[in-house]
């Protein structure tokens, strides 16, 4: 089957520490995507995490502005410190920004009702997504996710990099309780049976394709999904 992919989990740019020499240029990312039939992607720039959200966000907006295959995710800090430029939802749309992410553990704040209450409530109403990385150690852990979703149960939330070991015990209760939680697929694909069994239990609507590139291989997520024992309709 000749599948086309929309990848929601890619970062671009050069990380502060690249011990394994994994970063590639945006052009190389695009070339690889096109070879593998990945038509579109949601990306963020690693400098949003490693340098400062303000620097990274502006770099990202510029980078994706002239590339039709890319949409972007901006990184937020608590607005109280006035460090980042705030865009209206109309401006975000014009700039192809489709979500927000947060790195509280790296940027030293707490993502909660106290720091982001009104804003998260607005995102909840608008169904504007947040992307939460639960594995890197820079963003959130499952306890944080449980707590945020308890306060904002309708929040549209895409859990990325769900964990190296099978995380069904963490994620299935979330899928059961919160209707707008979605799982990014790359590490479900890594874990034997996790993607198939999650689809069986909660439906393919709750999973969005992602690769984790450049930390992980595009090919891995693609091959697993292509040969997962789920229906063709579910894959699409």
């Amino acid at each position: 089957m000749d599948c086309k992919f929309f990848d929601v989990n890619i970062w671009i740019g050069k990380p502060m520490n690249d011990e394994k020499n994994i970063s590639v240029t945006v052009e190389e990312t695009m070339e690889k995507m096109s070879f593998l039939n990945i038509e579109k992607a949601i990306v963020w720039d690693i400098s949003q995490r490693d340098v400062h959200p303000q620097i990274g966000n502006e770099k990202l907006i510029k980078e994706i502005s002239n590339k039709e295959q890319f949409y972007g995710v901006l990184t937020l800090l608590p607005f109280q410190t006035d460090e980042i430029k705030i865009y209206s939802f109309k401006e975000l749309k014009e700039k192809k920004i489709v979500g927000f992410n947060f790195f509280p553990k790296k940027h030293n704040f707490i993502l909660s009702k106290i720091s982001f209450g009104e804003f998260l409530a607005e995102l909840e109403n608008r169904k504007f997504p947040i992307f939460l990385d639960v594995m890197s150690g820079f963003s959130v852990d499952y306890r944080d996710v449980y707590s945020i979703l308890s306060d904002f149960p309708k929040l549209t939330c895409i859990l990325c990099n769900t964990g190296m070991w099978n995380t069904d015990r963490f994620t299935w209760p979330l899928l059961e309780k919160f209707p707008n939680v979605y799982l990014e697929s790359s590490l479900l694909s890594l874990n034997e049976g996790s993607l198939e069994e999650t689809v069986k239990k909660f439906g393919a609507e709750r999973i969005v394709f992602g690769s984790g590139f450049p930390e992980r291989y595009f090919e891995s997520s693609i091959a697993q999904l292509t040969h997962a024992k789920i229906s063709k309709g579910d894959k699409v």
């Binding site: 070991w165 890594l190 874990n191 034997e192 090919e219 891995s220 040969h227």
Partner: peptide, 14 residues
């Protein structure tokens, strides 16, 4: 059965 063969084998190509 922790990890998936398609995922792992594809990484050699990657």
């Amino acid at each position: 059965p922790w990890f998936n063969h398609h995922y792992y084998i594809a990484s050699l190509f990657g």
